[in-house]
Design a protein around this nucleic acid. Structure first.
Length: 259
DNA sequence: ATGGTCGTGGGACGA
């Protein structure tokens, strides 16, 4: 089972790029972020025609997450628990019923800039809610994962120019500590389980020729429960996607599971 | 140090 996470930065503008990538990469499951669409406007038929089941959790203009799956999806939950006042569409989870059942959670973690301010407070509060959900997930002792745009640069080697991010919400010590608190509950960060090498990124800004200069950061992650990590056979980043026509500023990150 | 570019929706705001 191949499972990918991809921040597409707007479904309308990404129809072609997303469709081409699905045809080539053939993920069984794609967790999408920033669909920037209400559920009713999401072009679900296009993906259903490719054999995907489609579950969305969208809102107007901003945010929005979705799950595409060639396997049946069960027990879909929309919204991260823990704050009834939070109306941002940033979380969707479901059970993928393949050879084995895998609980998949797709997330779009708040950016948090500017710092300090209410947006950064919201980011940290959201990460604390994520930690609570993560603990409950681990207690199930089943194959499960939380994947998406974390808006967290975990380590200096995850940025081409770490010095330019030191005051940014994506790289502040408090942000990285909150991320570690979640990982250290017992998750495996899929990409770092495969290599400790620097220079692997999942996002390049549209501005200032970031892609051309390879000025990237690695902020899209898959966190696996021990039972899911035991099943992992491969992990990769589809970097080449970023150099195509009308690309997202993120690229897909994927794993394969023996499930 | 600053501004640089996108997407959505049809003006600002988010990133």
């Amino acid at each position: 089972m191949k499972i990918a996470t991809f921040n597409i930065n707007g479904i309308k503008a990404r129809i072609k790029a997303l469709s081409d990538w699905l045809d080539e990469a053939q993920p069984d499951v794609a967790l999408l972020q920033e669909i920037k669409s209400v559920d009713e406007a999401f072009p679900r038929e296009m993906f259903e025609d490719k054999g995907y089941n489609v579950e969305t959790h969208g809102q107007n203009s901003f945010n929005g997450v979705a799950i595409l799956s060639k396997f049946p999806l069960e027990d879909v939950v929309r919204g991260l628990p823990g704050d009834d006042e939070d109306d941002h569409a940033r979380w969707i989870e479901a059970t993928v019923v393949g050879k084995r059942a895998v609980r998949v959670c797709g997330l779009y973690l708040p950016n948090g800039n500017p710092v300090p301010g209410p947006k950064y407070d919201y980011k940290l509060a959201w990460m604390e809610r994520l930690r609570t959900r993560a603990k409950a997930l681990l207690e199930q002792e089943e194959p499960a994962l939380m994947a998406g745009d974390y808006n967290v640069i975990p380590q200096a080697e995850d940025a081409a120019k770490p010095e330019s991010w030191v005051e940014d919400a994506l790289f502040l010590p408090e942000t990285r500590a909150a991320f570690r608190r979640i990982v250290n509950l017992g998750f495996t960060e899929a990409f770092r389980a495969r290599t400790s090498a620097p220079g692997h990124y999942s996002f390049w800004d549209y501005q200032a020729g970031a892609w051309q200069r390879n000025n990237g950061i690695r902020i899209d992650h898959l966190l696996l429960t021990p039972q899911a990590a035991d099943l992992m056979t491969d992990c990769g980043i589809d970097k080449e996607i970023r150099g195509r026509d009308k690309p997202s500023d993120h690229v897909p990150v994927w794993i394969t599971l023996d499930a």
